[in-house]
């Protein structure tokens, strides 16, 4: 086990990690300057995972949040989420998600399945029944399908379009990003809900507000918010890393 972990840490990896953390911070700032509704502040972490393996990725993510916590203390408690993102990127790299090109039909399928599940999740959430005692019951799938059939068809088409035009040939990287995003949303929700009362003081709070308004509890509203914004954000991060690795010159890859 330790030998395996050690293998991830050559001198080059060590040099790469601070650079990656700086990339996280600066890209996050540039994205904010472009006023884009995403964070994209884990590109460096994903890059290390992809190049140097899961353990190096995890260390990069964890340290990134702890070091950045010196300036914005609120990011420090989420260090374990960042570590998991780095680890997942390492696994994705091991399974070749950042290599080669994905057939278009796979990208379309990934996009369609994802937007479909997201729609299902959000609709189930909005249609939750809360009785007088405050006990919540989710509607059944069949009920949802019959009521929102048209919406589901639109979701599948939209997802397919996203897959075709956005994921393009980076479908596998995008898929790993989506999965990582879902995991990140699930594991960060308890901390966000318990320590931070469910808010971040940023734009995504509007989503939390919307889910609270439709009757969700605090933890589940945070989870719902995360499930909408995190997978999209991580999908884009993984795809940007796929692009970076593709653009790397032969000279660098040969090492």
């Amino acid at each position: 086990m330790f030998e395996k972990i050690k293998k991830d840490f050559t001198t080059k990896t060590l040099v790469l990690i601070p650079i990656a953390i700086a990339i996280n911070i600066v890209v996050g700032e540039l994205v904010a300057r472009l006023k884009l509704p995403i964070y994209l502040d884990s590109i460096g972490t994903v890059l290390v995972g992809a190049i140097a393996g899961p353990w190096a990725g995890a260390l990069t993510g964890g340290l990134a949040n702890l070091i950045w916590g010196l300036f914005t203390p609120t990011s420090a408690p989420f260090f374990y989420v960042a570590a998991v993102i780095g680890f997942m990127a390492g696994l994705a790299g091991k399974y070749g998600a950042f290599e080669g090109e994905t057939p278009y039909w796979v990208s379309v399928l990934v996009g369609a399945v994802f937007v479909f599940s997201l729609t299902l999740f959000v609709l189930a959430f909005i249609n939750v029944n809360v009785d007088e005692t405050g006990y919540a019951t989710f509607p059944s799938m069949g009920e949802l399908f019959s009521r929102y059939l048209l919406l589901f068809i639109v979701a599948i088409l939209l997802g397919g379009a996203i897959g075709y035009f956005l994921l393009q040939k980076g479908g596998y990287a995008g898929l790993w990003g989506l999965i990582t995003g879902v995991i990140a949303a699930i594991i960060s929700a308890p901390t966000a809900a318990y320590v931070f009362g469910g808010v971040t003081g940023a734009g995504t709070d509007l989503l939390v507000a919307a889910f609270r308004a439709s009757g969700g509890g605090i933890l589940s509203s945070v989870l719902a918010q995360g499930s909408v914004s995190d997978p999209f954000d991580k999908m884009l991060s993984f795809m940007v890393v796929w692009l970076i690795l593709k653009a790397l010159p032969a000279r660098f890859k040969a090492r």
Binding site: A22, A247, L248
Partner: peptide, 18 residues
């Protein structure tokens, strides 16, 4: 605008690693 801004930053700094 994202790709033309993020890529030079990442590529340029990866070249420094060695």
């Amino acid at each position: 605008a994202l790709v033309p801004i993020v890529l030079p930053l990442a590529l340029g700094s990866l070249m420094e690693v060695e």
